[in-house]
Measured scan of single mutants.
Amino acid sequence: EQLARLKREFNENRYLTERRRQQLSSELGLNEAQIKIWFQNERA
Rank of each mutant, 00 (worst) to 15 (best):
residue 18 E to S: 14
residue 23 Q to W: 12
residue 14 R to D: 04
residue 4 A to D: 08
residue 32 E to F: 04
residue 40 Q to F: 10
residue 9 E to Y: 07
residue 9 E to G: 02
residue 34 Q to T: 14
residue 27 E to S: 04
residue 29 G to T: 02
residue 8 R to E: 11
residue 36 K to E: 15
residue 33 A to P: 02
residue 8 R to N: 06
residue 11 N to R: 12
residue 15 Y to T: 11
residue 10 F to A: 03
residue 38 W to C: 02
residue 2 Q to T: 12
residue 36 K to H: 14
residue 7 K to M: 10
residue 39 F to V: 00
residue 24 L to V: 00
residue 30 L to N: 01
residue 41 N to K: 12
residue 19 R to W: 10
residue 13 N to W: 08
residue 27 E to G: 02
residue 28 L to R: 01
residue 23 Q to E: 14
residue 18 E to W: 07
residue 38 W to S: 01
residue 24 L to R: 00
residue 14 R to L: 00
residue 5 R to L: 06
residue 11 N to I: 11
residue 17 T to F: 03
residue 42 E to F: 13
residue 9 E to F: 08
residue 17 T to A: 05
residue 42 E to Y: 09
residue 42 E to L: 10
residue 16 L to F: 04
residue 9 E to D: 02
residue 20 R to I: 10
residue 34 Q to E: 13
residue 25 S to K: 04
residue 36 K to W: 13
residue 24 L to K: 01
residue 36 K to D: 15
residue 32 E to G: 05
residue 25 S to A: 14
residue 38 W to Y: 06
residue 25 S to V: 08
residue 13 N to Q: 03
residue 16 L to I: 10
residue 28 L to S: 03
residue 13 N to V: 05
residue 21 R to I: 15
residue 39 F to R: 00
residue 17 T to I: 02
residue 2 Q to M: 12
residue 35 I to G: 00
residue 28 L to A: 02
residue 19 R to I: 12
residue 29 G to M: 07
residue 26 S to A: 14
residue 43 R to D: 06
residue 18 E to P: 14
residue 27 E to A: 07
residue 33 A to S: 12
residue 10 F to L: 03
residue 5 R to A: 10
residue 39 F to L: 03
residue 40 Q to R: 10
residue 36 K to V: 15
residue 6 L to R: 03
residue 3 L to Y: 09
residue 18 E to L: 12
residue 23 Q to N: 08
residue 37 I to K: 12
residue 37 I to T: 10
residue 29 G to S: 04
residue 41 N to D: 07
residue 9 E to H: 05
residue 23 Q to V: 11
residue 3 L to V: 09
residue 33 A to G: 08
residue 7 K to T: 07
residue 30 L to H: 02
residue 12 E to M: 11
residue 39 F to D: 02
residue 34 Q to P: 00
residue 4 A to H: 06
residue 15 Y to G: 04
residue 33 A to T: 14
residue 11 N to W: 09
residue 15 Y to R: 07
residue 1 E to C: 13
residue 14 R to P: 15
residue 5 R to K: 06
residue 38 W to T: 00
residue 29 G to I: 02
residue 37 I to P: 00
residue 39 F to H: 01
residue 17 T to H: 05
residue 22 Q to A: 13
residue 17 T to D: 12
residue 10 F to K: 02
residue 38 W to P: 01
residue 23 Q to L: 13
residue 28 L to M: 06
residue 21 R to G: 11
residue 8 R to Q: 12
residue 2 Q to D: 05
residue 42 E to S: 05
residue 26 S to F: 14
residue 38 W to L: 04
residue 9 E to N: 03
residue 13 N to H: 11
residue 40 Q to Y: 07
residue 35 I to A: 01
residue 39 F to P: 00
residue 28 L to H: 01
residue 44 A to I: 12
residue 35 I to D: 00
residue 24 L to N: 01
residue 15 Y to K: 07
residue 22 Q to Y: 08
residue 32 E to A: 08
residue 30 L to G: 01
residue 42 E to K: 05
residue 5 R to F: 06
residue 10 F to W: 07
residue 18 E to N: 14
residue 35 I to K: 01
residue 10 F to V: 02
residue 18 E to T: 14
residue 36 K to Y: 13
residue 11 N to S: 13
residue 1 E to T: 07
residue 27 E to L: 09
residue 24 L to W: 02
residue 12 E to D: 09
residue 42 E to I: 06
residue 1 E to F: 10
residue 9 E to R: 06
residue 26 S to G: 07
residue 21 R to D: 02
residue 40 Q to N: 08
residue 33 A to E: 15
residue 17 T to M: 06
residue 43 R to W: 14
residue 23 Q to S: 07
residue 11 N to V: 09
residue 1 E to W: 15
residue 15 Y to C: 14
residue 44 A to G: 05
residue 44 A to S: 09
residue 32 E to W: 09
residue 13 N to E: 03
residue 23 Q to R: 11
residue 35 I to C: 04
residue 13 N to D: 07
residue 28 L to W: 03
residue 24 L to Q: 00
residue 8 R to D: 06
residue 12 E to S: 07
residue 43 R to L: 14
residue 13 N to M: 04
residue 24 L to G: 00
residue 19 R to F: 12
residue 22 Q to N: 06
residue 20 R to P: 01
residue 43 R to Y: 11
residue 17 T to C: 11
residue 29 G to A: 04
residue 35 I to F: 02
residue 39 F to Y: 05
residue 43 R to Q: 10
residue 4 A to R: 10
residue 38 W to R: 01
residue 10 F to R: 02
residue 12 E to Y: 08
residue 38 W to D: 00
residue 38 W to A: 03
residue 12 E to K: 15
residue 21 R to T: 15
residue 2 Q to P: 03
residue 17 T to P: 05
residue 18 E to G: 11
residue 10 F to C: 09
residue 1 E to D: 12
residue 19 R to H: 13
residue 7 K to C: 12
residue 17 T to S: 14
residue 10 F to N: 02
residue 32 E to M: 07
residue 34 Q to V: 14
residue 29 G to Q: 05
residue 32 E to C: 05
residue 4 A to T: 06
residue 16 L to W: 05
residue 31 N to T: 15
